[in-house]
Computed example of a mutant assay.
Amino acid sequence: MKQTMKMTFILALLTTFTSCELSSHIERRAQIINQHEDTILQISKENRMLKMKISSLMTEITSLESKNQYLKVQLQEAKEGKRPARTIASVRPVSAGNDLVQFDVYKWKPGQVLAVAEKEFSLKNFEKSAQFFNTFKTQFPGDKSLDDQFLFQAGVASFESGKHYDWAVQNFESLVEGYPTSKFYRGAKLWMALANLKLGHHEKFFSTVEEFRMKYRNTSEWKILSTHYEKIVQRHKKN
């Protein structure tokens, strides 16, 4: 009997020791796995950043190659006496000497133009972004990337540039007419109204305000429009 109790006690001790050791082992393994997961996530993030840098550098390289090829052709033609060599600055600008695209010089491909437009948009460089969006529309009118998101970004960039309100209206009109079920639909109407206001098209602005007052009074867009409307009314009262 005593021997049986002694064996039972020893087995209980062994079981407790083994259980503690197993728990400790599992905890150590879990910590190692978590560390590996953190490392993998960090490497994955760094890999994405490197891919973005590579893509940006490839675009710059292509741009420089196009520029270099253009200059070689100009130099060769000048040597052969075909015509005097022209500098890049002599290429006809898109807008009053502020052509940031210079499509005739760099011969951009569709993906390159769109990549620059979206990159500059994300960096809030709206003038450059607007010019690249507008160039994409002009040079590649049948491209499949000309969807509602493209038109919305192009319109916002044009508006925020503070210079191209007419481009903004064109983009938002195309979105509203071509994509009536788009998630950007109400936003496009709002931005278009504000662009029309900037252009002095007050009737179009007030028409949109009335539409929102009747249909979309519980939206964030209405709050923005109504604020502008109230400011205009107060300004007229003062005058």
Rank of each mutant, 00 (worst) to 15 (best):
T87K: 12
D99S: 09
A89S: 13
E127T: 14
K67A: 07
N98W: 09
P84R: 14
S174H: 13
E118G: 07
G97L: 14
V94T: 06
D148Q: 13
S129G: 01
V101K: 05
V73L: 04
S63N: 10
K119Q: 06
T87G: 14
G81K: 06
S66K: 03
S129Y: 03
L123Y: 05
E118N: 12
V73E: 02
S122D: 13
D104T: 07
L75Y: 14
P93N: 02
A154H: 01
E120A: 02
W108L: 03
Y165L: 08
A154T: 11
S129C: 02
K163W: 12
P110D: 00
F133L: 10
T138E: 07
K144F: 11
D148L: 11
F172V: 06
N134Q: 14
D148R: 11
L123M: 04
N98F: 13
F159P: 00
L175Q: 03
K124T: 10
L75P: 03
T135S: 07
F132E: 01
A85L: 15
E118T: 08
F132M: 04
H164V: 08
A130K: 09
T138F: 10
Y70T: 04
N171C: 07
K128C: 03
V101E: 01
Y165M: 02
W167P: 01
A89W: 04
K72H: 15
V101Y: 00
A89I: 13
E160P: 02
S145Y: 12
W108Y: 08
V176E: 09
E160I: 05
F136L: 15
V156K: 09
Q153F: 07
K144M: 12
P84G: 14
G81W: 11
V169A: 03
D166E: 10
A85K: 01
Y165F: 07
G111W: 11
A130E: 09
V156G: 00
